[in-house]
């Protein structure tokens, strides 16, 4: 156990600790890894941060599929940089999770054994290059909506990781939208591709905010702990309000007949996502679940010799260093 990660505290006699913890959270102060924290808070964070990390890592795949087939060197370089960023996001978050006393290798193990979840959005296929643009625009757009408030999350390492990530996400969204603008200036076929991709990704993007508040039992506690700062439905509304004018400018139609401005509410009304589909995809029956996890497992297993070689090299050099001292 390192000196900068979480410490075990003896059970019982925690009332005073609890009061201090509550006061810190209420005063919007950050909880740091070595502070006392309720076990349930720690467990909730481990779950949320590691699922978030897994989502970033699995999230490399739908776009990664297009790196080799990018239509120009410019698009290839952009896509490579974007996918590399997502790997980085995963690593920032694994680092944050480790301050809670879990082990990164163990989390990877849990992911490839299907014992931990990741965002359902990445279980949909990316069928054409327009999907790359729509993922950047809508999926990264939804991620930004989700993540900006998490920059004020009560757990210090998580909120700091979110600050780094949010700085990088805006490039992700803009490159996607710009890609779509170019395609919309192209042929009729290209415009159809963009519309088709929008039709397929719109509803899964709305599902990224999680189930409706009424069916999200953990939201209340997470908000009380200030791990979460907004409810799922509030974030979803915010995303819809942001996306509608962007879609208009782009010249695409969002596939929701109920979408309409509501002057009274000052928001767009919109239809209900298919929550049955959502539950299926979350529980593993989405179009790409098995493939995504299998691929992550293959990458991990095929990389084993590299990790072993690097370890052997480090050992050899360390003993050489010790011998010369």
């Amino acid at each position: 156990m390192s000196t900068v990660t979480a410490q075990e505290t003896p059970p019982g006699a925690d009332l005073e600790h609890q009061a201090e913890f509550d006061a810190k959270v209420a005063a919007d102060q950050r909880i740091e890894p070595r502070d006392w924290m309720p076990e349930a808070y720690r467990r909730t964070l481990v779950r949320q941060v590691s699922q978030h990390a897994h989502s970033e890592i699995i999230g490399m795949q739908p776009e990664g599929d297009w790196i080799a087939s990018a239509p120009s060197l410019r698009r290839k370089a952009i896509l490579l940089a974007k996918v590399q960023d997502e790997a980085g996001h995963g690593l920032y978050l694994y680092a944050a999770a480790e301050t809670l006393g879990v082990d990164r290798a163990d989390l990877t193990e849990r992911l490839i054994e299907g014992r931990q979840k990741y965002s359902s959005i990445f279980n949909y296929p990316s069928l054409t290059f327009a999907d790359v643009g729509v993922i950047g625009w809508l999926v990264d757009g939804a991620a930004i909506c989700n993540q900006v408030p998490l920059c004020r999350s009560s757990f210090g390492p998580y909120s700091r990781a979110m600050v780094r990530i949010c700085k990088e996400e805006s490039f992700h969204q803009r490159q996607g939208y710009e890609l779509l603008m170019r395609m919309m200036e192209g042929t009729e076929g290209q415009r159809r591709m963009v519309q088709d991709a929008v039709d397929r990704w719109w509803w899964p993007s709305l599902m990224m905010f999680g189930p409706p508040d009424a069916e999200s039992p953990n939201t209340r506690q997470s908000m009380a702990w200030r791990i979460k700062r907004d409810t799922n439905d509030d974030l979803r509304q915010k995303f819809v309000d942001m996306s509608v004018p962007q879609a208009e400018k782009l010249g695409v139609t969002l596939p929701d007949p109920e979408l309409a401005w509501n002057g009274e509410r000052g928001h767009y009304d919109f239809g209900e996502p298919d929550w049955v589909e959502f539950k299926q995809v979350v529980s593993g029956a989405g179009p790409k679940n098995a493939e995504r996890v299998a691929r992550r497992r293959a990458a991990h297993e095929k990389g084993a010799w590299v990790r072993e070689a690097a370890t052997a090299y480090a050992r050899k050099h360390q003993s050489a260093e010790e011998a010369t001292v």
Partner: peptide, 24 residues
């Protein structure tokens, strides 16, 4: 302080830190 990472040795730790924490 910006975060942490795992590496087999100091040299690799530096390289990984560059790739992870200073891409921009």
């Amino acid at each position: 302080h910006v975060g942490s990472l795992h590496a087999p040795d100091r040299t690799m730790a530096l390289h990984n830190a560059r790739n992870l924490y200073t891409r921009r």
